[in-house]
Amino acid sequence: MSVRARLEAGPFDPSAELARLVEAASNDGAVVSFVGLARPQSKDGANVDRLVLEHHPRLTLKSLEDIAVEAAERFDVSQVRVVHRCGEIGAGEPIVFAAAASAHRRAAFEAADYLMDRLKTEAVFWKREEGPAGASWIEPTEADYADRGRWE
């Protein structure tokens, strides 16, 4: 089993991440991936120029690694990958890549879903949207916590 989590201060290429995972999972029958993008509008419809993800280098990376390891232990997967941006992210840019590979599709789908539910609510980041109307701190929503609760 291979589990990798990475924190990126600059842009990354989700298609390259997926290609590396597919190559590593050559003996598997399924690869499921998710790419999260920085939205150009806030929940209230205000324009957003950038998302700023403040972080603590060691704590944030450890939170990503722990979530990835727990996904690998929970589901019958051979590969787990997490790449998460930090710092300033322009609207439309990738924020997160979460993926899993397994012999069969169900485990890969569940692992990827689990990764995102946990990353959204537990990864150690302080998130702020910035745009023409100013800056606003954002937190996980009740729906985000309800999604995570499915795994308890």
Rank of each mutant, 00 (worst) to 15 (best):
P40N: 14
R85F: 04
H104Y: 03
A19D: 12
R50D: 07
L7A: 06
M116Q: 07
E129G: 03
V48R: 05
A108W: 00
I89P: 01
H104L: 01
D13W: 11
W151T: 09
A46H: 14
E65W: 05
A112D: 00
E93P: 05
G149R: 09
R85W: 07
A68I: 01
E17G: 02
P14F: 05
R4G: 08
E65V: 05
D144V: 11
S42L: 03
A100T: 00
L64G: 02
E110R: 14
A68K: 03
P14E: 06
L51M: 13
A38I: 13
R74P: 01
D147P: 08
A91F: 04
V83G: 01
G90C: 08
L7E: 01
N47I: 10
E130I: 09
S136T: 15
H56V: 10
A25H: 03
S26E: 13
Q79W: 08
F125P: 06
R39E: 07
V52T: 14
D113S: 09
C86E: 09
Q79A: 09
L64W: 01
G92V: 11
E122W: 11
R150I: 08
T60P: 07
E8N: 06
A100C: 03
R118A: 05
Y145V: 11
R148V: 04
Y114Q: 02
T121D: 08
A9K: 12
F97N: 00
E152H: 11
L21G: 00
S2C: 12
I67H: 07
A111E: 00
A107N: 09
W126H: 15
A111S: 10
P57H: 06
V69T: 12
L37K: 15
D76L: 02
E70R: 10
S33Y: 07
A46C: 13
K62G: 09
R85I: 04
L37E: 12
F109V: 06
D28G: 10
L21A: 05
L53I: 12
S2I: 14
A5H: 05
E8C: 10
A38Y: 09
G10K: 12
S102Y: 01
G90L: 14
M1R: 10
A135E: 15
G134W: 12
K127S: 13
S2Q: 15
G29K: 03
A108Q: 00
T141P: 10
G92I: 08
A9L: 14
V124T: 15
V31G: 00
V3S: 05
M1Q: 06
A111V: 01
A135S: 15
S15R: 13
K127G: 10
L53N: 12
P40V: 04
I89S: 01
D113P: 03
Y114K: 07
R105D: 07
R128G: 07
I67E: 01
